[in-house]
Design a protein around this nucleic acid. Structure first.
Lengths: 115, 115
DNA sequence: ATCATGCTTAGCCATGTTGCTAACTATACT
DNA sequence: AGTATAGTTAGCAACATGGCTAAGCATGAT
């Protein structure tokens, strides 16, 4: 378990912006060019390019140039570390619930069999 | 499907910082006071309090004062919107894979029965 | 009453983020 | 060749973020 994983920072940060989530949403349906990504957002190209670089830094998107158009593709594997972290977190929480359960169970046993 | 959910911004942003994830990790094991949260981070109290307010803004933590100590508790339900979004995203992606599958299948049918 | 503890507020500083415009490059079209 | 298209780069402005110190306030212990 990484104590302090910089990749998670990039991942969560990338997802924390509505424009970037919109772009990912589009890319989950299939590859797209930069202009097509920009379309629905109403933002200028340089802005979109910046967002794209954030998504690429997080590994969520890979892109390549084909002629004069850059084709961007969603990289679902990049989500894995986040899912792992969420899973760890869930386990911790449920472990706590289990222990609470034990506690209550023991309490009731004591009530039933106690002095 | 929310087109532009500000709550998701807060949620992902809250998780994008290693200090805050560390705090959540501690809280998933059970409630803790502010000083206890600060301990492992090596950061000053005012800084921790700021992080705490970010976590509270995202709904991930609830706190209350008991005497002079503030007790903080993890709120697992706050994770739900994020899980929903991730699930939507996964569905989109898998839908795409299915369609790709169909495409390949059709292509092979045409190859077999075509002119 | 005094002192220690635990939190809180105010305010500073450096850096990062998000949007923009303007100017540039490289490829395609006619 | 000349024009349109698709990115790209540089740089600016406004605001947010993450750290700090110093000073304040409320509660518990002696």
């Amino acid at each position: 378990m990484a104590k302090h994983d910089p990749h998670l920072d990039l991942l969560f940060h990338a997802l924390s912006d509505p424009t970037r989530r919109m772009m990912l949403n589009r890319l989950a349906r299939g590859p797209a060019a930069v202009t097509e990504l920009a379309g629905p957002t109403g933002l200028r190209l340089p802005t979109i390019l910046r967002h794209l670089s954030v998504l690429e830094a997080a590994g969520l998107v890979a892109s390549q140039k084909d002629g004069r158009v850059r084709s961007c593709a969603f990289q679902p594997k990049a989500m894995a570390p986040m899912h792992d972290w969420l899973e760890d977190q869930r386990r911790l929480w449920e472990g706590r619930l289990d222990r609470l359960d034990d506690y209550v169970t023991n309490l009731m046993k004591e009530r039933n069999h106690g002095p």
